[in-house]
Nucleic acid binder design. Sequence first.
DNA 1: ATTATATAAAATTTCGAGATTTTGATATAT
DNA 2: ATATATCAAAATCTCGAAATTTTATATAAT
Lengths: 215, 215
Amino acid sequence: MQEVDIYQTLKRKLVSNGFEHGAKLRAEVLRKEFDCSASTIREVLFRLSTVGLVSFQEQRGFRVPERSPEKLIELTHMRVLLEGEGTVMSIRAGGVAWEARLTAAHHQLSHIETRIHEAAASDDLVAIWAGAEKEFHETLISACGSKTLKQMHGQIYAQFRQQLMLADRDFDFISTNIEHHAQILEAALSGNESLTRKKIHDHLARHLTGETLGV
Amino acid sequence: MQEVDIYQTLKRKLVSNGFEHGAKLRAEVLRKEFDCSASTIREVLFRLSTVGLVSFQEQRGFRVPERSPEKLIELTHMRVLLEGEGTVMSIRAGGVAWEARLTAAHHQLSHIETRIHEAAASDDLVAIWAGAEKEFHETLISACGSKTLKQMHGQIYAQFRQQLMLADRDFDFISTNIEHHAQILEAALSGNESLTRKKIHDHLARHLTGETLGV
DNA sequence: ATTATATAAAATTTCGAGATTTTGATATAT
DNA sequence: ATATATCAAAATCTCGAAATTTTATATAAT
């Protein structure tokens, strides 16, 4: 298995319930799982600690970051800030091409959310939903013109998902949430910047209280 | 030399003119300089790429990031966003203790800037100034209550300094800049949030045009 | 002269073993 | 019973050499 594949596989596991929060990531175990040397694993884990998905402590190895209500609040705050700013920049610079992409991304997300809401949420469907939700929020900021902003948002978004894991799975598909995405789309297409910021904030607001992880 | 020292030493060199922009960071060379193995160097470089101070490309090793006017503009934009948000949060939550720390940090910065402005800027003085300027801007957001925001700001600030290196050294000490710091302090102490945001923006505005790196 | 190919040199990446440090268990003392 | 000290097991970290890949050089072909 290629190192880049090991990286992707581990990353996916880290943001989608593949490990317990706080679990130790032992080189020896992972070495066997991926059939490579301990140094290669060590390297991949360093790269993942790069983006905050793995915590590293000198002489004490690597761990999955603990779940923490405060951390989730901080990450949510950053998402509101970065997605709000990035979306406003996209509104100004994106043009029709961006509006088209956003509409398409929302259509797909809306489709899968409705489907899950009506039936049950199988693991397969949840995986598809996770991709569509990520795509929608990334499309919002995709025309902002700042690689730096997109990169930071990518880091924050991944850590946000990792904090949440499946804790909030049910809520993600209730009609309130489906409505939220529609309102963000509508506000963005209307070009109303402060309204768009507000709708993004409202969508994420339930994670700003600490209740989502039970405080 | 301890690995943590290697990390610090390299980091300092990377943000203060110790390397050319775009320079290759060869493991063999650094291995000899710090008298350790190639793997140790490799690890440190991975950690520095964690925070964006070193760029890494598969099979092509590590480099000092290129200087780029666009990148500087993006980093400046992020600084305005993060320092503005963090300072406003500090105004709300910091209390007298924060105000006292901010006043102290400004006093030290003001002192050194005046001194350099009157005389010439020796390398020693510039190093002291760099510390004082970093301290002032970090104190602004120090009471924001978000470890995540502080961490991201730290990354952005280091990359910002790395982009600038000594390109803008002269301007850093002219009276305009000294005035800027005083106005940020005054606005923050007055508790006027939008004015504080504006003063932080104005202070950094010259880096938003591209002129600083000559576009 | 320019492009393409083959070869050599140099740099990066992987590896497993040895050295170091932490962790956990057991024994001893307060 | 609590705390401290000692030792063994386990994990992490460092290292230098071997394997792989890139880069540079020289040769041949168009």
